[in-house]
């Protein structure tokens, strides 16, 4: 149905070519992470060199990045669980409201996404200090949930709008209360959508830098902050940043590979009704 073999091969090659170009910065970053700076920044670029895993070793073993990985994991999982639960319930509620009301609410929430985050960092810090939460996991999780919520609600709402109303009506006739309609009827239908929302929430939480810089401390520092600390002055640090950046991609890649089937199906199912 989708075109014969004659078009398939060129199509594949074109797409693969684009993919290759697209990946160049990542690959180049990886090569940089296994070169000494004298090779990494050579003119013209060097493709033959003595590889060194010194920087990867330094990052994970000497500088103790695994500790920050644990922090990142706790914060990411906390954010995903909280944010997806709230998002799901709120989206379900919205999907059953009239569309004018829900549109207004949604737009209000989206305001957070449009405001420069650098300015939100100050209020978040002030708030966290008042609550005594600086350098704790909850502070970071709450901030990330607040930032991420509009997106999850919007995305999840798309999935719920797809659920036929007859299903709800049938359940109500069977005597389900509101909670049961939600948990037994609506939720199972949108399960693939949950994975998609979870992935995007995870990406946001895992890579977030600005709030992490302000709200975390020595006990809760996340990977992006740890990497940014090596962003600067001496070019030895550049190789370190590259090594760390490549390293911290891996958990997400594994997560995506595990979930890929759900992901595409999930997106296909839902977001359409945006």
């Amino acid at each position: 149905m989708r075109g014969g073999h004659r078009t398939q091969i060129p199509l594949f090659l074109a797409l693969a070519g684009f993919t290759a170009v697209n990946l160049t910065p990542v690959i180049w970053g990886f090569l940089t992470s296994i070169k000494q700076p004298v090779d990494a920044f050579a003119v013209p670029p060097r493709f033959i060199f003595a590889p060194t895993f010194e920087f990867h070793w330094q990052v994970w073993v000497e500088k103790g990045f695994w500790h920050f990985l644990i922090n990142s994991a706790v914060i990411s999982v906390g954010t995903v669980v909280t944010s997806v639960s709230i998002g799901t319930m709120a989206a379900y509620g919205l999907s059953r409201l009239s569309s004018t009301t829900s549109r207004g609410l949604l737009f209000g929430l989206l305001a957070m996404r449009m405001f420069p985050h650098i300015l939100l960092a100050i209020p978040f810090f002030v708030l966290a200090r008042i609550l005594g939460l600086v350098n704790t996991y909850p502070a970071m999780i709450l901030a990330l949930v607040a930032i991420n919520q509009p997106f999850t609600i919007w995305l999840m709402r798309g999935f719920f709008v797809d659920v036929p109303h007859e299903l709800y009506e049938a359940a109500e006739i069977d005597g389900c209360d509101a909670w049961q309609v939600f948990s037994r009827v609506a939720l199972p239908v949108v399960r693939p959508g949950l994975w998609v929302t979870a992935l995007f929430s995870l990406l946001l939480a895992y890579n977030e830098f600005l709030f992490a810089l302000v709200l975390t401390g020595p006990d809760t520092k996340t990977l992006p902050v740890a990497i940014a600390e090596y962003g600067g002055e001496d070019i030895n640090y550049w190789s370190l940043s590259a090594a760390a950046a490549i390293g911290i991609m891996l958990p997400i890649v594994v997560f995506m590979m595990a979930l890929q089937r759900h992901l595409v199906r999930g997106l296909a199912l839902g977001a359409v009704k945006g």
Binding site: M89, A90, Y92, R96, L133, T136, Y137, P138, L142, A178
Partner: peptide
């Protein structure tokens, strides 16, 4: 079911419960 209700309650509960559960490192 009012969505704002869920939200506020949930955030509050999370805010109160989280430090206990996660043992926010003092």
């Amino acid at each position: 079911m009012k969505p704002e209700g869920i939200n506020r309650r949930y955030v509050l509960r999370a805010a109160l419960a989280a430090p206990v559960i996660l043992g926010g490192p003092a």
